[in-house]
């Protein structure tokens, strides 16, 4: 273990000599995909509860497909599948985008977590108590104001416990990045393992770091829950 830490310690944390790697890369992937996934999910969650079927259906289809297939398949499809298609190659912007492995990885991650988050938020919006809506209407709020001031803040608060779970699962899912040559924590562990022929130490070190990140996230979310869900405490 000490040997591996001496040789690969810095790579496990943040820098493999040429690129950002290890924990730093994993966190960066997590922040990017969860952040953008959140921005994607919010409007989709509202659309998912729309009255019109024409709006509702495509969103349902999106979440159904992305929740019904493994993330690994989605990553492969975007990383190896899409980039083989001719029109992607001929389009300058698309070509530049898909050429970078990390772009493909983040895109597939954000679509995946976006789909799950959409369903989480949509469920929370659906369960908004009718009293809150009645009150908002009685105040003479427009639909837009009602969503902005009442429904969304209240739904997001109530979705927090489930959403925190999704973020932890997304952290676990970032390990797939190494299959697309992105030097995340697991990739460093894999390199250390194939160089030292010691699977136990190499992967245990990675597992411990993941455990630390998980605990930090759980702690953070607990604090947030206590703050934002205080009004729901018994």
């Amino acid at each position: 273990m000490i040997e591996i830490i001496k040789q690969y310690g810095l790579a496990y944390l943040c820098w493999d000599g040429y690129n950002v790697s290890g924990t730093a890369m994993t966190l960066w992937l997590l922040v990017l995909s969860c952040g953008m996934g959140f921005c994607l999910a919010l409007p989709l969650a509202i659309a998912r509860n729309a009255r019109s079927r024409i709006i509702r259906f495509p969103v349902w289809l999106f979440t159904f497909i992305f929740r019904g297939t493994p993330l690994y398949v989605q990553l492969l499809l975007i990383y190896s599948g899409l980039y083989q298609l001719n029109f992607v190659h001929q389009h300058v912007l698309l070509n530049d985008f898909f050429r970078q492995a990390i772009n493909c990885t983040v895109l597939s991650f954000l679509l995946n977590t976006g789909a799950y988050t959409t369903e989480i938020f949509a469920g929370a919006i659906r369960e908004t108590s009718h009293g809150e809506v009645d009150a908002a209407l009685a105040m003479g709020m427009s639909r837009f104001t009602m969503y902005r001031r009442i429904i969304i803040p209240s739904a997001l608060r109530r979705a927090l416990p489930v959403y925190s779970n999704e973020v932890i699962l997304m952290l676990h899912a970032t390990t797939l990045a190494f299959t697309a040559t992105v030097p995340d924590l697991l990739k460093v562990a894999n390199d250390a393992y194939s160089a030292t022929y010691d699977p136990f130490d190499a992967f245990t070190l990675a597992a411990l770091l993941y455990l630390c990140i998980s605990f930090a996230l759980i702690f953070g979310f607990r604090r947030a829950e206590r703050r934002f869900l205080a009004y729901l405490q018994p």
């Binding site: 932890i168 952290l171 676990h172 899912a173 970032t174 390990t175 797939l176 697991l186 562990a189 894999n190 393992y193 699977p199 136990f200 992967f203 245990t204 990675a206 597992a207 993941y210 455990l211 998980s214 605990f215």
Partner: peptide, 21 residues
């Protein structure tokens, strides 16, 4: 606690290679 804190892929590699040893 440990299982839910460590990614499945990491555990899988750990078990696949170490358990055999």
């Amino acid at each position: 606690t440990i299982i839910r804190g460590v990614p499945d892929l990491v555990l899988m590699l750990l078990i696949f290679y170490s358990l055999q040893i």
